[in-house]
């Protein structure tokens, strides 16, 4: 099983894809990847453009780094329900090329479909039928085109590679009966994938010559002053979108690593503790500076100890100023 995953993943241009698949039990992952690979063929190829290697900027120090060790903190709470008893599919546009769908099917609806298809629910071939309904008042039959995605039986969500920006989409969750009939279980809301390039629609009142627009547009790609070609700009812009120039979220959530992930490292420091005791009402100075005694007359000081000699006169004077004592530890530290 494991091998299969690896091999398949290599073949796909998008290795990260496995991550986006619906979360299901591990043992089944291999199968799902395979399925996703098949689904991919049914759609156009615009995806590669957004999957090119991440730009360097992403490695900025502001990008979240791995966390230091935090002991797992567990809190008691109930679990959220796996299902709410609805029959429903919802879709969300993730970016110009991907649409996310999640769904659930109630027990009643499952039984109904079982009767209609004469196949048990678990053995049924479940599909997402993805309609491109751009410019249509969709009634179920007038889509510009559609494609089907075979689902893993246990899947309850899916990332659909629609591969086309600025289009409207609607998705049916359904089953295909052994004799090839499609039974719709639920129909989704409609979403529109966002544009990934400049609009060709121009408002007459706010027209500008192409070259001037490209100048402004090109600034995004760092072309100040130059007049880049349109194709060149489009390419640069897509790269721009992959740069992380905001933290996103909130900055404070990012915790620093404790040196980890930087290869081998070692640090050695030394500190010196100077401690002692005298009469509680005596006055004590260390290197000429007065210090505070504990109630029982003890004291303890802690110093970072650099290389070299430290001469540390500790002077105590009795409360009646009659008696005085000086003790001077001398410490030599060197590092090799």
């Amino acid at each position: 099983m494991k091998k299969a995953v690896k091999k398949k993943a290599k073949k796909l241009p998008v290795v990260k894809k496995a991550k986006r698949l619906p979360v299901i039990k591990k043992a089944r992952k291999a199968k799902v990847v395979k399925k996703a690979g098949r689904a991919k063929k049914t759609v156009s190829r615009a995806v590669n453009a957004i999957e090119s290697p991440r730009s360097k900027t992403e490695e900025t120090k502001y990008y979240p780094r791995p966390t230091p060790y935090l002991p797992p903190r567990q809190w008691e709470h109930e679990e959220l329900p796996e299902r709410y008893g609805d029959t429903r599919i919802v879709i969300m546009a993730r970016d110009p090329y991907w649409v996310f769908a999640y769904w659930e099917v109630s027990d009643e609806r499952r039984m109904q479909v079982e009767r209609e298809a004469s196949v048990s629910w678990n053995e049924m071939r479940k599909v997402l039928r993805v309609y491109d309904i751009t410019g249509k008042d969709f009634n179920g039959y007038n889509a510009n085109r559609y494609f089907d995605i075979d689902l893993h039986p246990a899947a309850t969500s899916w990332y659909i590679n629609v591969g086309a920006a600025d289009r409207s989409w609607c998705v049916d969750l359904g089953v295909i009966t052994p004799d090839g009939k499609f039974i719709m279980i639920a129909r989704s809301n409609i979403v529109m994938t966002p544009r990934d390039s400049a609009s060709d629609v121009v408002d007459e009142e706010w027209m500008s010559i192409e070259e001037e627009f490209l100048k402004l547009y090109g600034l995004w790609g760092g072309f100040a002053g130059a007049s880049p070609g349109k194709a060149q700009i489009k390419k640069i812009m897509k790269e721009r979108l992959q740069q992380e120039l905001s933290s996103g979220g909130f900055s404070s959530s990012v915790r620093p690593p404790n040196y980890k992930g930087r290869g081998f490292w070692m640090v050695v420091n030394t500190e010196l503790i100077v401690y002692g005791a005298t009469e509680p009402d005596a006055t004590v100075t260390v290197q000429g500076r007065p210090i505070k005694l504990s109630r029982d007359g003890t004291f303890s000081l802690r110093f970072a100890l650099p290389d070299g000699d430290q001469v540390i006169p500790v002077k105590g004077v009795s409360a009646d100023k009659e008696e005085e004592r000086v003790i001077t530890p001398i410490v030599k530290k060197f590092t090799r």
Binding site: K19, L21, L80, D95, Y102, S157, P194, E244, L245, S246
Partner: peptide, 27 residues
């Protein structure tokens, strides 16, 4: 156009295999 200032410019940071499970509950 639909957009954000997050990673890749759209919704990917908030809709991904690590966090997509929350939306069915939120909705």
């Amino acid at each position: 156009t639909m957009s954000s200032w997050g990673y890749k410019g759209y919704c990917e940071h908030w809709l991904d295999g690590s966090n997509d499970w929350i939306y069915r509950h939120l909705h």
